[in-house]
Measured scan of single mutants.
Amino acid sequence: MDVFMKGLSKAKEGVVAAAEKTKQGVAEAAGKTKEGVLYVGSKTKEGVVHGVATVAEKTKEQVTNVGGAVVTGVTAVAQKTVEGAGSIAAATGFVKKDQLGKNEEGAPQEGILEDMPVDPDNEAYEMPSEEGYQDYEPEA
Rank of each mutant, 00 (worst) to 15 (best):
E20R: 03
P120I: 13
G84R: 06
K43A: 09
K97G: 11
E13F: 09
L113P: 03
G67N: 01
E137H: 04
A53W: 03
G106K: 08
S129L: 13
V82P: 05
G93T: 01
A29M: 04
Q99Y: 07
G86E: 15
G25Y: 14
A17T: 01
V55Q: 00
H50R: 12
E57W: 07
G132P: 07
L8W: 15
D115C: 11
E20Q: 08
M1I: 00
D121G: 10
K96T: 04
V3R: 15
K97Y: 10
E28Q: 04
N103C: 10
A90N: 09
A69C: 03
V66G: 02
Y125S: 14
S9T: 04
G41H: 02
Q109M: 06
S9V: 02
S87K: 06
E110T: 08
P120V: 05
D135H: 13
V71S: 04
T44K: 00
N65P: 03
P117A: 04
L38F: 12
V48D: 00
K97P: 12
K10D: 04
T59Y: 00
E126H: 10
T92H: 03
P138C: 03
E131L: 05
Q79M: 03
K80C: 08
K23M: 15
L38Y: 08
G47W: 06
E57Q: 14
Y125F: 13
M1W: 00
E83S: 08
V118A: 03
S87R: 10
T81Y: 04
A11H: 01
T72E: 09
S87M: 10
V52P: 01
E35Q: 09
G84M: 10
V118L: 12
V82T: 04
E28I: 06
K23W: 13
K43G: 01
E130V: 03
D115V: 12
G106H: 11
A89Y: 14
I88T: 05
Y133N: 13
T44E: 00
V63D: 02
G106L: 12
K58Q: 05
T92N: 03
A124I: 04
A78W: 12
V16S: 06
V40D: 00
G36H: 15
A85Y: 14
E131A: 02
M5K: 07
K58E: 04
K60R: 12
N122A: 10
A89C: 10
A107P: 07
N65I: 07
E123Q: 08
V82D: 03
G41I: 09
P128M: 03
E83I: 07
S129H: 13
G36Q: 04
V95D: 07
N122C: 15
E126C: 14
A124K: 08
V15A: 01
G132V: 01
K6V: 03
E123R: 14
I88V: 06
K10M: 02
V49G: 04
G106R: 01
K96L: 10
P138K: 08
Q79K: 09
G47E: 03
E57T: 10
V48H: 00
G73M: 01
A19E: 00
V3T: 01
E28R: 12
E137S: 06
A78M: 14
